[in-house]
Design a protein around this nucleic acid. Sequence first.
DNA 1: CGGGCGCCGTATGGATCCCGTAAGAACGGG
DNA 2: CCCGTTCTTACGGGATCCATACGGCGCCCG
Lengths: 242, 242
Amino acid sequence: MKILIADDDPQILRALRITLTAQGYEIVTATTGTQAITRAVDHRPDVFMIDLGMPELEGIDVIHAIRGWSEAPILVVSGRSGAADKVEALDAGADDYVTKPFSIEELLARIRALTRRVAHEDSDPVVQLGDVTVDLSAHSVTRTRGGETEHVRLTPTEWQMLERLVRNPGKLVTRQTLLTEIWGSEHVSDTGYLRLYVAQLRRKLEPDPAVPRYLITEAGMGYRFDPDGGPVEPARETAHEA
Amino acid sequence: MKILIADDDPQILRALRITLTAQGYEIVTATTGTQAITRAVDHRPDVFMIDLGMPELEGIDVIHAIRGWSEAPILVVSGRSGAADKVEALDAGADDYVTKPFSIEELLARIRALTRRVAHEDSDPVVQLGDVTVDLSAHSVTRTRGGETEHVRLTPTEWQMLERLVRNPGKLVTRQTLLTEIWGSEHVSDTGYLRLYVAQLRRKLEPDPAVPRYLITEAGMGYRFDPDGGPVEPARETAHEA
DNA sequence: CGGGCGCCGTATGGATCCCGTAAGAACGGG
DNA sequence: CCCGTTCTTACGGGATCCATACGGCGCCCG
């Protein structure tokens, strides 16, 4: 997420750069109106923070210029607190207006509110197991067969186990961990739950349940989810390499 | 353009109603949190103006509830000017925060800024469930049978539930989520509400209520709306078939 | 080299919980 | 006071979960 900050006060610029960088934003700064436009065209920021009282070009004109080609949110930061200034800026195309001095926490929250609408493409944890798609956020499992998608129904316990495995791709999940996290801390002795539900999951998810490629069992330790699907032909000899 | 104003001060309500009506807006008012949610579901406003200090239900909870099914802009109007309150409201899903007393001109400008963004978005929430059409924006359900269209009446609670499900197509909606968002955060134990209203919805919407194809129940977890209508042949238990 | 043992996969049956349905009471607005 | 909505209660059916049993496989050990 890239933010362009246009302010003629270098001290404010420095402070904001430090704070916003710490929040994970990428910062581009400008000290004049013309520079703001130039850098905006150059860097294509996702959010604008624009001060009104800049030399060379008024902030209002900068807003107009930006709105000529960008839909990105514009947050105006200004020392003027009059209603007329706010109305003018907002009607020019700004999305929010904050007066100096402002709380940095509030500013961050307003930036989050503005970017929330633009950046709803937060990567959904979606995992592919051959022709089966697992969407953890939607709690849905679908199998695509010949262009047709059909839903695969999972019981709550099956979900619990699948979630534990998929959220740790490639890593071993101890039998102990699964038992205590799903059935409670008092369960330590394996009475056969795991084998049961792993079998059930494989039957519903694996292309060939008899030859597991994604839900791998580590004998004596636990289970592991292999996101790559393992080898296609497991019957060969892959003995000693380096 | 319809605006819902939720405030416990009837005097403010009256003043805002006059001013905003003069601007060409359609106004819906509410004086309590629960009433705000009810009327929101009922009238589907394009913008929300919510006061924080309302009885029955905190403004924050109202914001959460609205965000459960609506993307409409939320403007918080509050007497509290602390940064913490602002951060909390904005992070809960609000788009703007204005402190009382406020300039009416500024308020109008902020509303214009918020609605400007919505006008560009073009999600037309119309869903088909067999021969039944659900128009979320128009707040209407019609069944077309042999060229003839008849109106289907839904109670407010039925709408609440249908909204939650249809707004999240394909995604599982937890029983917990439905309970807390529709009946309040104090409800956690299922006393049978959900089964009741889901049955009611199925009776009114499903082509064959005995074999649900759109309002799918996920045993032990919640419910899910399947926009594709699922398979014609309901999936049997996973045995050993090709 | 062979047997014993432990671990894993699979199948089956019963106990329990959850879901769908219905009928009736309580509540609130017109 | 009537009517629509919401809530309570109860019951039958089905799904889920759990316990048990059996066969296969690899590993350790004799």
